[in-house]
Design a protein around this nucleic acid. Structure first.
Length: 203
DNA sequence: AGGACGATTAACT
DNA sequence: GTTAATCGTCCTG
């Protein structure tokens, strides 16, 4: 009988958001479906959103019904709805009462490809190469908002990846902050694995 | 009550 | 390069 993969502990998330973001790269996201299907992928792109003073972060408006999860337990999920049709998955970071999170933007799918493709027919490389594609492929929606990723029996969680830890990720401005003022708009808080950058350059 | 807008995506020209 | 799709949330009045 195969041993269950352990979720990363809350201590992983209870650190500065940029540290969590950087170290999330190369980790894997796992989801255990009710029927036993296991979905997994290696995280290759994330973004950091840090506090009420970050005018690119939803928490810029303070504590509201929508942003409450950002102020919650580190290691829990912040799942929000946008553009009338898309869900986004974040990992809450830092400490309770401080609103910050890491947005999961892309991963390399490794397990459960057939279920992902049943949810939406596409080539494997285009299954999870965007934040709304990840949630669609993994079947993540409002039900998972505030879900605790750190319990021993979590059905959605992060775990160590199969590869060596990343050295220095590529850092660029965050994507999609069209009306966010400077300097927040240009802060290099989008982080990618370097081999992912190279792969995108090749096509 | 009404409107602006969005941490996106796919499908255009 | 541009734009439609589509609706929850927040702000204004």
């Amino acid at each position: 009988m195969k041993a269950r993969i352990s979720p990363l502990p809350r201590a992983f998330f209870s650190r500065p958001t940029l540290t969590v973001a950087r170290e999330s790269l190369g980790k894997q996201l796992l989801k255990l479906e009710a029927d036993g299907t296991r979905l997994a992928g290696i995280i290759v792109e994330v973004e950091a959103y840090i506090g009420e003073t970050d005018l690119g972060c939803h928490a810029r408006a303070g504590l509201t019904a929508r942003t409450a999860p950002l102020y919650g337990l580190p290691g829990s999920a912040y799942v929000y709805f946008t553009y009338g049709m898309h869900w986004m998955l974040n990992f809450v970071t830092e400490y309770e009462g401080f609103p910050a999170a890491v947005l999961l933007r892309a991963l390399r799918p490794t397990e459960g490809l057939s279920l992902m493709q049943a949810r939406r027919q596409r080539p494997p490389a285009e299954l999870t190469n965007g934040p709304a594609k990840v949630t669609q492929a993994f079947g993540i929606d409002r039900v998972w908002n505030e879900y605790d990723l750190c319990t021993a029996d979590a059905r959605l969680f992060l775990a160590d990846g199969p590869h060596c830890p990343e050295t220095i990720p590529a850092a660029r401005p965050r994507v999609g902050l069209r009306n966010t003022p400077e300097p927040w708009r240009s802060l290099p808080w989008n982080l990618k694995l370097r081999d992912q950058v190279a792969e995108e350059a090749n096509g």
